[in-house]
């Protein structure tokens, strides 16, 4: 689950992930408000509940209120869902790619979260 202030950014990240991940991953964005930038806890809660029943949900979010809205969304969904939703402490794009790759090869939710968190250390210019 991608939570960004920008609907376009959220969709764009999903586009990247769909190319990497196999058909078994449900990749979704709950990003932006109706007509402008922002995050919406109700939209996130709906998107979580639209995930395949019984699946674990890993949320990757961008800045500031994205975390607050995601946490608020967790309080709006039924507890059976809440227990299966995990927030990744990771940069949005690199973390989401790492998470999607790990999930697509069958990694546990713990492994997915760990790979996403590892992306914080990812160096892009190592010379």
């Amino acid at each position: 689950m991608i939570v960004s202030h920008s609907a376009k950014l959220g969709e764009g990240v999903c586009e990247l992930l769909r190319q990497l991940a196999g058909p078994n991953l449900h990749i979704a964005s709950a990003s932006g408000l109706e007509d402008r930038l922002g995050t919406d806890a109700i939209k996130i809660a709906h998107a979580i509940q639209a995930c395949p029943p019984g699946s674990d949900v890993v949320v990757l979010f961008d800045l500031g209120s994205a975390r607050l809205s995601s946490e608020m969304a967790l309080e709006l969904v039924p507890s059976a869902w809440r227990e299966r939703v995990f927030m990744a402490d990771a940069p949005l794009v690199e973390g989401a790619v790492a998470a999607a790759v790990e999930a697509s090869i069958g990694g546990s939710v713990e492994a997915v979260l760990a790979r996403a968190a590892d992306a914080r250390q990812l160096r892009k210019l190592d010379d």
Binding site: L33, G38, T39, D40, A41, G64, S65, L68, M72
Partner: peptide, 18 residues
């Protein structure tokens, strides 16, 4: 609370909503 979530967008949305 529910109206603010979909209309404010920034951090003040979830905070005032809470």
């Amino acid at each position: 609370a529910m109206t603010l979530l979909g209309t404010v967008g920034g951090a003040s949305g979830p905070l005032y909503s809470t």
